[in-house]
């Protein structure tokens, strides 16, 4: 029996890294959304908020697309 510690370590590092990165980027997107909606409520608009939300959510969509690419063997 051999335990592939390198592979185990890689899975650990990549999983934690990807999770934290996606959630942090998404959280910034949510903050942008909150800012945009807050401004809208007061009758103005927050272009910065909208742009921040758009960019962050787009980045998350890209990660999801890569996830689907990994899941579907026909793409490989």
């Amino acid at each position: 029996m051999t335990i592939d510690w390198t592979a185990l370590g890689q899975v650990t590092a990549v999983s934690i890294g990807v999770t934290v990165a996606v959630v942090v980027v998404f959280a910034f997107g949510v903050l942008g959304l909150a800012r945009y909606e807050g401004a809208k409520e007061q009758g103005s608009t927050s272009t910065v908020g909208a742009a921040q939300a758009g960019l962050c959510f787009l980045a998350c969509v890209a990660v999801v697309a890569y996830g689907i690419y990994l899941i579907v063997p026909q793409f490989h």
Binding site: T19, V23, V24, F26, A27
Partner: peptide, 21 residues
């Protein structure tokens, strides 16, 4: 770690927007 970061980052945001997002 991700949960901790998510709460830390979004405390400044409007609660209902954060939940919805």
């Amino acid at each position: 770690i991700a949960t901790y970061a998510a709460y830390k980052l979004t405390t400044r945001g409007r609660a209902d927007s954060v939940t919805k997002g």
